[in-house]
């Protein structure tokens, strides 16, 4: 009799715990800094055509400097996440606010895209899926044990787009999210390297009440179509 009472009590305790986890999924936000480097476009040009790179050098360095000053925020719950630049009151912040040329990444169970306004038009760009390989390598980031994963974007058409990704994720935060559309690992991504972006988590808040809103609507394109468009001349 006493045994069955304790068994029932234990089952009830586990049920309450299970239901509470279902009802209150882990919500939070992460702030990332970006230690930007030259984009692969400029790197290739610098290696293959140094005389042409001379013409682009100032722009390339200016871009690295500005991109390194932008911080980003990822807001997430179990199902959805939103990743965007943090708009400060400085000059760069004003440019980003007025022009809205920084992408806003939105991920849910059935979608993974970014919103951006380019060439005075709104776009919703569906991101190519990432094929991940998780390694045994680990390190601590902000007191969380993180594992290294190597990803490759799966494009329909093989182009010169930079598809290799390195990410460090923690299983201690059960949310398949990460910065800049880099996600779908079994835990939150706290460090990511893709092209000229090198994003490092600086602060984690697991008690966030921020609302994850859907970005503005725009013309729907896939990632390859978008980059093809951005690499075309404006003055045609």
């Amino acid at each position: 009799m006493i045994n069955s009472f304790f068994t029932t009590k234990t089952i009830l305790k586990w049920m309450v715990l299970f239901l509470s986890l279902q009802l209150y999924p882990q919500n939070g936000n992460v702030t990332y800094s970006n230690k930007a480097t030259l984009s692969s476009y400029y790197k290739t040009m610098k290696e293959n055509n140094p005389s042409k790179f001379k013409k682009f050098e100032q722009l390339a360095e200016y871009e690295v400097n500005i991109m390194s000053q932008i911080d980003y925020k990822l807001i997430f719950n179990r199902d959805k996440s939103l990743f965007k630049a943090i708009i400060y009151g400085n000059e760069i912040g004003q440019i980003l606010k007025v022009k809205q040329t920084e992408s806003v990444f939105f991920k849910g169970p059935a979608f993974n895209y970014f919103y951006v306004n380019k060439r005075f038009k709104d776009y919703n760009v569906n991101l190519a899926p990432i094929k991940w390989e998780i390694t045994n390598k680990s390190k601590q980031i902000l007191s969380y044990v993180c594992y290294k994963a190597i990803g490759k974007k799966v494009y329909n058409d093989s182009t010169a787009l930079d598809s290799k990704i390195e990410a460090w994720f923690t299983k201690e935060i059960n949310a398949p999210h990460g910065p800049k559309g880099i996600n779908n690992l079994p835990g939150l991504i706290l460090e990511a390297h893709h092209g000229s972006y090198h994003l490092y988590a600086e602060e984690i808040n697991l008690d966030s009440k921020e609302i994850i809103y859907k970005p503005s609507r725009g013309e729907v394109l896939d990632e390859e179509e978008y980059f093809k468009l951005m690499r075309s001349a404006v003055k045609n």
């Binding site: 290739t44 682009f56 010169a160 951005m230 075309s232 001349a233």
Partner: peptide, 10 residues
Amino acid sequence: LEISEYNPCL
């Protein structure tokens, strides 16, 4: 590679 990466917009 150079041709496919060329970006006239830049």
